[in-house]
């Protein structure tokens, strides 16, 4: 299993655009969704390849969750074509969901049951039952480090444990594709790191992942490729490193307040690009030396130098206005 996946990842790393050799797990063309007079998804093309982790990034209301709902056949598209695991959606969505795991944005574990019962009951919602359900549940409890909590009621679980149980529940049917809507939102750093580890383990097993997130760090760490979606359209789709390389200068210097005012003219002259965000001056540079040396020589100036990251790309592409 491992060898072909490595090959796929390498192919993706070299070139973020798709070549058509591995059949896509998800294939969307011109996907649209209109609610009344409002078109929230406006022509989305997507190809998700087997074994990759594909990220959907976008501000609130960009259409991420609607795209996921359409992939799962939970709401019919108003236009375009969609195939998931070779099943046409929404016509054969039930058959597709038989082979998909879902981790929803808000935990919807069954509060009337214990941890183990939650998994056992959920398994029954599938047509295909595991050969040995008890063993499958034991395995999943171990996988999500909940084996000591099998008989705990849901109310006794922490937020991180609930998320882990949601992930375990999504794996009950041995899915080929796992769809995660903001898997680590609201978790503490330990819980988040744990979820990331588990997702990487799943990728290692050959599972394909699609996730939405607001966390650029999460996207950068986990995703082989990602699509930035805004106003119902994909505005960029590539590997995280290519996105940064393509859309933003690699070095960023930040100055604040009086320092920014004092050094504005000089900085803008040396930078490839600059912008003000509130009272912070952001200076972008292809080569860091000129700016770095000049700043270093300036005494008493406080500044912060860092490599450009996905968040810079995201903000550049989707703008800095608040989305509510």
């Amino acid at each position: 299993m491992a060898a072909p996946e490595e090959a796929i990842r390498e192919a993706v790393d070299e070139d973020g655009t798709l070549d058509s050799t591995p059949p896509a797990i998800v294939c969307a063309r011109g996907l649209r969704k209109r609610y009344g007079g409002l078109e929230v998804v406006r022509g989305v093309d997507l190809d998700v390849r087997p074994g990759e982790c594909f990220g959907l990034l976008g501000p609130n209301g960009a259409g991420k969750t609607t795209v996921l709902r359409m992939l799962l056949g939970l709401t019919p598209p108003t236009g375009g074509t969609l195939t998931v695991l070779d099943e046409p959606i929404p016509v054969r969505a039930r058959e597709a969901r038989e082979r998909i795991g879902v981790v929803p944005q808000a935990d919807n574990l069954d509060p009337d049951f214990t941890v183990r019962e939650n998994l056992a009951i959920y398994a029954r919602y599938f047509a295909r039952q595991p050969a040995d359900p008890d063993r499958r549940i034991d395995d999943l409890l171990r996988f999500s480090s909940l084996d000591g909590r099998a008989d705990a009621p849901i109310q006794a679980l922490s937020g991180g444990m609930k998320r882990r149980l949601s992930l375990a529940r999504a794996l009950i049917n041995g899915p080929e594709l796992v769809v995660l809507d903001e898997p680590s939102t609201g978790l503490d750093p330990q819980a988040r790191q744990y979820i990331w580890q588990r997702l990487l383990a799943l990728l290692g097993q050959g599972c394909t992942l699609i996730l939405t997130t607001h966390y650029m760090e999460e996207a950068e760490r986990l995703c082989d490729r990602l699509a930035i979606i805004d106003n119902g359209r994909i505005i960029a789709c590539d590997t995280p490193s290519n996105l940064v390389a393509r859309h933003i200068e690699p070095h960023v210097f930040e100055l604040r307040g009086g320092d920014a005012e004092r050094w504005h003219r000089q900085g803008v002259g040396l930078a490839a690009r600059s912008e003000y965000v509130g009272d912070t001056l952001l200076l972008y540079a292809v080569e860091p030396d000129a700016l770095g040396d000049a700043l270093y020589r300036e005494s008493g100036l406080r500044y912060w130098q860092r490599p450009a990251n996905l968040e810079d790309v995201f903000l550049r592409l989707t703008g800095r206005d608040l989305r509510d």
Binding site: L74, R94, E95, P104, N108, D110, Y122, Y125, F126, N173
Partner: peptide, 14 residues
């Protein structure tokens, strides 16, 4: 409140 149906719809139930 419980979103029990939501969980069912994510599984292959209609």
């Amino acid at each position: 409140v419980q979103q029990t149906w939501g969980a069912m719809l994510d599984a292959p139930l209609l």
